[in-house]
Design a protein around this nucleic acid. Structure first.
Length: 233
RNA sequence: GAAUGAG
C-alpha cells in the first residue's frame, strides 16, 4: 500500500488521472486510503463530479468513508456547489459521529459559507467543539464573499478576543475582503495591524494588498474618466 | 501511506 499510495498520489496530484486510476485498478486490492487520495485529488483539481462518483462507487464496493474520506467528499461538493449532496454527507457525518472532528466541522463551514448558506455555516461553526483559526477564517471568508464585511471583520475581532493567535491566512483573508469591496483604506489598516502584531506577511498577503491598491488605482482612474465625461458632454 | 481555511 505504501508504494501504491505514493504512485496514485503522485499521478493524481499532477492531474494525470489516467495513470493514477490505472495504478489504482491494477493494484491487487484497494483500501480506504487509496480511495481517499483519488477523491481528494479529483476534488482538488476541479473534478468534483468524478470525485463524488468515486465516493459513491467506493461505498458500493463496501468501503465505509472515514473522516479523511469525508473531507475529500465535502471538498468535492464545495467545488461544484453541490450543496444538497453536501447536506447528505453532513447527515452521514453526524450519523457516524464525525461531526466532533474539527477538521470536518471546518470543511462543512467552508462548504456552506462559501456558497452563501451563511446560517448553516454559522450553525455548524457554533457547534464545532474546538474552534481554531481555520474555523474562523472559513466563516470570515464566507461572510466577506457574500458582502457581509461587517460580520467578516467581527470574525477577526472575535478570533482575537478568543485569545487565538491570528495567522497570516486570517489577516490576508480580511485584507482581500476589503480589497474586493474597493476599501483600500480598510486593507491598509488591517495590514498595519497585522504588522503591529508581528505576523509576517505571506505572498497571499501581498497579493491581497496589491489587489486592494490595484482596485484603488483603477477606481481613481475611473473617477478621472468620469470627470472627463462631464467636461465633454 | 491520504487530511479542513485566504491567494
Amino acid at each position: 500500500f505504501f508504494v501504491a499510495s505514493a504512485l496514485v498520489e503522485m499521478y493524481a496530484k499532477h492531474g494525470l488521472f489516467a495513470e493514477a486510476t490505472h495504478v489504482f485498478n491494477t493494484f491487487p486490492e484497494q483500501d480506504i486510503v487509496l480511495w481517499s487520495i483519488l477523491i481528494a485529488r479529483y476534488a482538488d483539481l476541479g473534478h468534483g463530479d468524478e470525485a463524488l462518483s468515486y465516493f459513491e462507487e467506493m461505498q458500493l464496493k463496501g468501503f465505509s468513508p472515514n473522516a479523511v474520506t469525508y473531507l475529500g467528499g465535502l471538498k468535492a461538493c464545495c467545488s461544484i456547489e453541490a450543496i444538497d449532496r453536501g447536506k447528505e454527507l453532513h447527515a452521514d457525518i453526524v450519523k457516524k459521529g464525525f461531526e466532533l472532528d474539527s477538521s470536518i466541522g471546518n470543511a462543512l463551514v467552508t462548504l456552506y459559507a462559501s456558497h452563501g448558506w451563511l446560517t448553516d455555516a454559522q450553525d455548524v461553526f457554533d457547534n464545532v467543539s474546538a474552534r481554531d483559526g481555520v474555523s474562523w477564517t472559513s466563516l470570515l471568508a464566507g461572510y466577506a464573499k457574500h458582502q457581509r464585511l461587517e460580520q467578516a471583520s467581527r470574525c477577526l475581532e472575535l478570533l482575537q478576543l478568543d485569545g487565538m493567535p491570528v495567522d497570516e491566512f486570517s489577516w490576508s483573508t480580511m485584507i482581500l475582503s476589503y480589497a474586493e469591496q474597493g476599501d483600500s483604506e480598510g486593507a491598509s489598516v488591517t495590514y498595519a495591524r497585522m504588522q503591529e502584531q508581528g505576523t509576517a506577511p505571506s505572498s497571499g498577503t501581498f497579493l491581497s494588498m496589491l489587489k486592494a491598491h490595484g482596485n484603488a488605482a483603477a477606481l481613481e482612474m475611473g473617477r478621472r474618466v468620469h470627470a472627463q465625461v462631464h467636461r465633454n458632454t
